[in-house]
Nucleic acid binder design. Sequence first.
RNA 1: GGUCCGAUGGCCGAGCGGUUAGGCUCAGCUCUGCAAAAGCUGCUACAGCGGUUCGAAUCCGCUUCGGACCUCCA
Length: 497
Amino acid sequence: MQPLQIQNSLTRKKEIFKALNSPHVGMYVCGPTVYSNVHLGNVRTFLSFDIIYRYLEFIGYQVRYVRNITDVGHLVGDADEGEDKIGKMARLQKLEPMEIVQKYTNDFHDVMRVFNILPPSIEPTATGHIIEQISAIEKILDNGYGYEVNGNVYFSVRKFSEDYSYGELSGRKIDELMSNSRALDGQSEKRDPIDFALWKKADETHLMRWPSPWGVGFPGWHLECSVMSTKYLGDRFDIHGGGMDLKFPHHECEIAQNVAANKTENPITYWIHGNMLTVNGRKMAKSEGNGFTPDELITGNHKLLERGYTPMTVRFFMMMGHYASTLDFSNDALIAAEKGLSKLTNAIEALERLEGTPETNPSVDVSALSQRCYDAMNDDFNTPILIATLFEGVKWINSAADGRFNLGTEQITDLKTLYSGFMKDVLGLESEGSESSNRGVEGSDDIASNLLDLLVELRSDAKENKDYAGADRIRNTLSDMGISIQDGKEGSSWSHE
RNA sequence: GGUCCGAUGGCCGAGCGGUUAGGCUCAGCUCUGCAAAAGCUGCUACAGCGGUUCGAAUCCGCUUCGGACCUCCA
């Protein structure tokens, strides 16, 4: 197994990864609240964890990856005092709450597929786990860390902090929280302002409601993640991820609930937080009005975009930065990513066509290159370093394709393994050209590529006969179709633009 | 106001005590019917000011600027 190191946001240190029950790994990532379309900032987080998931599997772990769908309990505005996000949308769109949930869950799944983000092993929903949430509340009450007022149940942070530590993950001091917490408008039933809701009473107008020992109501936000992670991964599991903005209060509350319900300290070994996608230096957020939907990005239909970019370009762009750093979104950066990706994919296509020489090239050490790829990923999933390393091999490949450099047959085989593993399996970069042409009948891809080979040959013949008009006609027509021709020392070839 | 991050060349973005990161752009060259692609060469930066050290973009202090969280947010 590779010696993987992870920057643990719980301890703020880079630590050697040790699975509780190797080779099995339990990983939980906070999924979306499905009340509106996802934007690119959301995509970045899921993409970051997609890479982590892929790499863990790649180096031999068997990962149970749980990513939830929050479809109830997440309130608008001030915590515990606002309207349910999904209920509000349902009212505005005059739909059943479950229609809202379905609509935006479908959208979410479509987006994940477009960006080639793998589905999790389990994708549980909050409404599907009401019974478990109620019983978790009962456990928390039995253990003395909650209290009921008028059909509402709250978590007592003060009581909890007497027995356990609260605020470790987000680095908050309980006293400061007590005094700094924003004063709530109106009188609150909470004993302390930092207490949070486990169960809320539903009034008559509330659309989403379930019976409970405390009357008709609905579960609080934070609770579903505690309950579902425990249910599918156990009282203790390896990795918990999510966006940086969830660290407080969501993840802090989650830990407190897990501990309070199960009396298991340190339920999660490694916390990983993905950083924000920014636009002109500001966090992309719906409330800022600077969010892009994936669709706007692909079509280019947005006032800040000069044109559209393909999903794989966006994927590559996001992986050129480290997941724990903010990443700034700009046209120039996207264009650079597009060119870089195309250089890389063209080289891989060239590699497929390469025929090696019997003797190996002593100046090329594929296994050293490969190890550096592993090293990059082992160092807290450093995809920018991985990509930089992959570009080094590109020089060998292109030089060999130009016939001014030799590569041994075995070296070529090793390079193919390397690039297929890190580009496809780890980075999840699929060739977009072949994806679209695969939509047709089985085998149409072969026919298309055979036809292209034929056209390239015909053009070479034309060139040989000094029929440059004919040669250029083939080149220009193909170019209009998105196919470009490369002339090299060893003859001509084609590739998707 | 509290807590915590960050400031890297024309752009994006790694590095976090001694390396040419890498990509993109730009200029020149090679190849080419032309072009593109590809290869080669060049462009050597770390916000500012002090300090520690044989040596600092990397460690410490101060200053300036930016951001995140403390409310819902991936």
